[in-house]
Amino acid sequence: MGVQEQQLINEAFELNWIAPVGPHLQKFEQAVIKYTGAGGAVALTSGTAGIHLALRASGIKEGDIVFCSSFTFVASVNPILYMAAVPVLIDSEPEGWNMSPEALRTAFRKYEKKGMLPKAVLVVNLYGQSADLKKLKAICDHYEVPIIEDAAESLGATHEGMSSGTIGKYGVFSFNGNKIITTSNGGMVVSDDASSLEKIRYWSTQAKDPADYYQHSEVGYNYRLSNVLAAIGCAQMSVLDQRIEARRNVFRRYYEALHEIKGISFTKEIHGCSTRWLTTLKMNLSCFRDTPETIVKRFEQYNIETRRLWKPMHAQPLYTGCDYVKHADNQSICDELFETGICLPSSSNLSVEDQNKIIKHLKNFLAESKV
C-alpha cells in the first residue's frame, strides 16, 4: 500500500460511497480497460467469481464439458463444479508451463469422437506469463469453442503485443492480497462482448430486475466489488508498471546468480512479456540429493518461506475422477513440474539485501546436496 490508497479510501468515506457501486468502482473498471485495451470490464469480489460468471455467460450447463489447465490453483477449476459441469484437465507444455497445445488438440480429437465437444476452454496464464494463446485459440476457433483466460496471475503481461486477459472471449483478473496489485480481495472480468458483460453485471448484483420493487427472474449472486476496495484498486493501477519492473528485477537477480548452477533451470519467457509475478525454478533431481520438499524445509529453518509449484488438479483428491490429457503419451509435464519445482520469494518490495540472503542459502543448499 502507498499514500494514494489511503487518500482514495478517505475520499470514498467522505462521499459516503461505502456499499458496492460508486464513482471509484467505475474509475477502477475504466483504468483496467484503458490499461489492457479490453472492450469493457466488470469488477467483482474475486477472480473466482469472475470465472464462475464467465462460465455462466458462456452458456455452461449441468453435464457440459469444460477443458481446463491441470497445472493451476484449485480456484481455476472449482467454478466448473459450481455449474455442475465436467472438467477435463489438460497438461502443460515444457517451456512456459502453461496449457499444452498438443494436449489440447489431443483432447479435442478424443472428445469429438465421443460427440462431446467442450462448451468452453479455460486457459490459465501461470506465474505472470500468458499461455501460447495464438496456437490455443487457433485450435479452439477450429471447433468454435470460446476461450476463458484465467489471467489472475498475469495482469500486465502481453502476448504478441496483446494484453493478457484480452485474447480469449473473456479474461479474468484477480486482486487478491498476493497478486501483483491488490484491492485486498477482488477480481474483474473483461471482454469485448458488451451484452455478456451486462449479464455478468446483472448476475453479480443478485440479478435484480429493473422494477420499482424487488423482483428476480434469474438466480444471482452477491459478487459486486465494493466502492471502497475499488478506491484501493484505482491507486494500485497507478503503480502497476512499477510493480512489474520490480518483479522482473527480482527475477533478473535470481537468474544472474543461479542460472549457471548445473541442474537448475528457470521458466523461459516465451510468447510475449512476463510480469515474473513469481520466480520459479526446476531442479534436475539426478543432480541433487535434496528435493524441492527438503529445500523448502531447509529454508524454513531461516524463517524464509518458499513453496512447491502447484500440485496438478488431476492429482488432487477432489479431481482424481476427472479425465486428464497428457502433453504426450509417455510424458506428463505438470507432474514433472510438481516433483521438481520451487517458487522463490518474489515480492515487489523484496529488498536486495534479503534477496542476497535467499540466494546465498540456496547456493549453499544446492552445493551441499550435489550428487
Rank of each mutant, 00 (worst) to 15 (best):
E218D: 13
V219H: 00
V219R: 09
G220M: 05
G220Q: 05
G220W: 02
N222P: 05
N222K: 11
N222Q: 12
L225D: 05
S226L: 04
N227H: 03
A231I: 03
I232V: 14
I232K: 14
G233Q: 11
G233F: 04
G233M: 09
A235E: 07
A235G: 13
Q236P: 03
M237W: 02
M237N: 01
V239H: 12
L240I: 08
L240Y: 06
D241V: 03
R243Q: 15
I244G: 11
E245C: 01
R247Q: 11
N249F: 02
V250L: 06
F251K: 12
R252H: 07
R253T: 11
Y254D: 09
Y254G: 09
Y255V: 05
E256D: 13
A257I: 03
A257D: 01
A257R: 02
L258K: 08
L258P: 04
H259A: 10
E260F: 07
G263F: 12
F266R: 07
T267P: 00
T267L: 15
E269F: 00
E269W: 03
H271G: 02
H271A: 02
T275C: 06
L281E: 07
K282R: 12
S286Y: 00
C287I: 04
F288D: 12
R289T: 15
R289H: 14
R289D: 13
R289M: 08
T291M: 05
T291C: 04
P292T: 09
E293F: 12
T294A: 02
T294I: 08
I295M: 13
V296Y: 03
V296Q: 14
R298E: 15
E300I: 00
Y302I: 03
N303V: 03
N303D: 15
N303E: 13
N303C: 05
I304C: 07
I304P: 09
E305A: 13
T306Q: 04
T306V: 15
T306E: 04
R307M: 11
R307E: 08
R308N: 11
R308A: 09
K311E: 13
P312N: 02
P312D: 03
H314V: 02
A315S: 13
P317C: 12
P317T: 12
P317N: 11
L318P: 00
L318T: 11
L318F: 06
L318I: 06
T320K: 14
G321A: 08
C322H: 05
D323E: 15
D323L: 04
Y324W: 10
V325T: 13
K326V: 06
K326M: 12
A328C: 04
N330R: 08
Q331R: 12
Q331F: 14
Q331A: 06
S332R: 06
I333D: 09
C334S: 12
D335P: 06
E336I: 09
E336Y: 11
L337V: 09
F338L: 00
F338K: 01
T340A: 10
T340P: 09
T340W: 02
C343N: 10
L344C: 07
L344S: 05
P345C: 09
S347E: 15
S348M: 08
N349C: 07
L350I: 14
D354G: 01
D354L: 05
N356S: 14
K357Q: 13
K357G: 00
I358Q: 08
I359N: 06
K360Q: 15
H361Q: 11
L362T: 02
